[in-house]
Design a binder for these strands. Sequence first.
DNA 1: ATGTTATAGTTTCATTTGTAACTAATGGCA
DNA 2: TGCCATTAGTTACAAATGAAACTATAACAT
Lengths: 156, 156
Amino acid sequence: MRQRDDGGAIDFALDDFLPYRLSIVTNHISQAFARRYSEAFGLTIPEWRVMAVLGNFAPLTANQLCRRTAMDKVKVSRAVASLVAAGHVRKQANPVDRRSTLLRLAPKGRRTYRRIVPQALDLEAALTAALAPGDRDALAATLAKLEACVADLVRA
Amino acid sequence: MRQRDDGGAIDFALDDFLPYRLSIVTNHISQAFARRYSEAFGLTIPEWRVMAVLGNFAPLTANQLCRRTAMDKVKVSRAVASLVAAGHVRKQANPVDRRSTLLRLAPKGRRTYRRIVPQALDLEAALTAALAPGDRDALAATLAKLEACVADLVRA
DNA sequence: ATGTTATAGTTTCATTTGTAACTAATGGCA
DNA sequence: TGCCATTAGTTACAAATGAAACTATAACAT
């Protein structure tokens, strides 16, 4: 219906194009979070993601962090390096496989984590406050479907 | 409800965190599009966005392109420069204001545009095919609400 | 008119990011 | 055991990005 008008001229409006809309909104949201994390804690988004995961599951190897954060290993490696330098994360030899190291939050990292989580949830709440009840779950469900679908597209 | 468990330990799961989910899905989708544009037409996403807008509204100044594509002026400048070099876009003096130039698709650009649009719509259709009827519109509506909300957050 | 301030767009430079090469350690398997 | 392929993680280099400086033109106030 929005493919062609009757003259054969192409009618394509970027504003109605879902991938574009998704990209704009998401980038704005990411920026808002990045600013908050950076100003208040000096953390980048990759760093915060690593913290967020280590706050829940630890110890983990860098490889496991890759899967849980959906970031590539270079990004994880850099984020971890700077978190270790800042004293937020502690490295520990892995007796089972000496190629990898086990990572967990250091006490300082845990304190930071406990301060960040409420802020992150607040920011999320501020965002979803604009939505009708049920919208949030509907969005989550839709995202899950898109995720499954795009996984195929990326592979193909 | 998902803020704290009864022991006072923080319960924060990145997987349930909407901004994170949004970011992952969107990045995957963007990658899928970027690959398609790049392989088939040698275009980056910023370049394609400029083409998409010029295909609909022309002539435009770079400044107007900034607003319509939601990209900053440096990105637009570079995208336009490379599109002009490739012969996709034509520059034309602006008699009204000689600081700016008017931009429109060149014939070659228009041909490319006409080949890309169906592919973009196909890819979007493949994506939304996984959704229930109505999901697409619901998503669009939700995105609009989030957009309005995040605009305030970014400003604040 | 003339000086000041603002805007359009480009360029420069520092930072970020991704790809590919590299090192170190493991796991078959002959 | 000793070799080859695989995997974990880091590093090096190149491409993309963003902030700030810069050029040219316009708008405005005196």
